[in-house]
Simulated assay, not measured.
Amino acid sequence: MKAKYRISEEDYVNTMKLFAKLTPRKIFSYSTFVLVLVALAVFGPLVVKAGAIGGLAGGLIVAVFGRYIVAPILARRHYRKYRAIHEEFTVELLQDGVRFISPNADGKLMWNHVLKWRQNDDYILIYPMPRLYHILPKSVVSDGFNVSLLINRLTQHVGNPV
């Protein structure tokens, strides 16, 4: 089963948000760091309290500003400069992997070469490397592509989504 699709600028921005989604390990790490700063802000000497409060405020501002303002602007800029992403892609689900075809490339990604995968209601990201992924909009189901079979095979061969 094959399906054709295009990645829009909005798709690209939304998949960057999915890419940046915090994992349980990162949530634990950030939460621990925040708790240490809160403890220092409450129980530390005056100079340490000031530094901890500044660190908390600065971290919050950077996190919110970075995630909701800077990241979408950069994603849109990257999309505009990344000409190959504007072209039509074809995806084909195979028994031993998934095949991605574009005017510039034709590649088969075997299940044992998939590092991890991620999904939300609209997209599936398939990672052959930690920071490199293939984007698959779930809307390809309207072109006859069996998204639930792909999810089942990813779960079976790679594991649960991260």
Rank of each mutant, 00 (worst) to 15 (best):
N112A: 05
V91A: 02
T32R: 09
I85F: 04
Q119I: 09
G51I: 15
S8W: 08
A52F: 06
D106A: 03
Y82L: 11
A3R: 14
V36H: 07
I85A: 03
G107A: 09
V42Q: 03
L115K: 02
I124G: 01
P130S: 01
E9N: 09
F33V: 07
G55R: 06
I85S: 05
L115G: 01
I126R: 00
Y82S: 12
L149M: 12
I126Q: 01
I73K: 11
E88C: 05
A71T: 10
S31N: 03
R153M: 13
A105E: 13
T155L: 05
M110P: 14
K49G: 08
Y5Q: 05
P24A: 00
K4L: 10
P130T: 01
P24W: 01
K4M: 07
E10S: 12
S8R: 08
K21G: 11
L22Y: 04
G66L: 05
V62Q: 08
K21L: 13
L149S: 14
H134R: 08
R80G: 10
L37D: 15
E92C: 02
D11Y: 04
D11C: 02
S142N: 13
P128E: 02
K108E: 04
M16E: 13
A39C: 10
F65S: 12
L22F: 03
A52Q: 11
P130C: 00
L94E: 07
K116M: 07
M16V: 13
D96R: 04
N112H: 14
K108C: 02
H78L: 08
G97M: 00
A57V: 14
L18D: 00
H157F: 14
Y123S: 02
G66Y: 06
Q156N: 12
Y133D: 01
K4D: 02
I53M: 11
K2M: 11
T90I: 12
I73C: 07
Y79H: 08
V47H: 10
Y30S: 09
Y123D: 02
G58K: 04
V13A: 08
P24H: 00
Y133K: 03
D143M: 13
P128C: 05
K4S: 06
L94P: 01
H86D: 12
S142F: 08
E92M: 02
P128R: 04
K116T: 03
H134L: 09
E9D: 06
D121Y: 02
H78S: 14
L22T: 11
K26C: 00
R153K: 15
H157G: 04
R99S: 03
L40R: 08
G97F: 00
G55W: 08
A52M: 06
Y12S: 07
I61W: 09
G58A: 11
T32H: 12
R6M: 10
L46V: 13
L125Q: 01
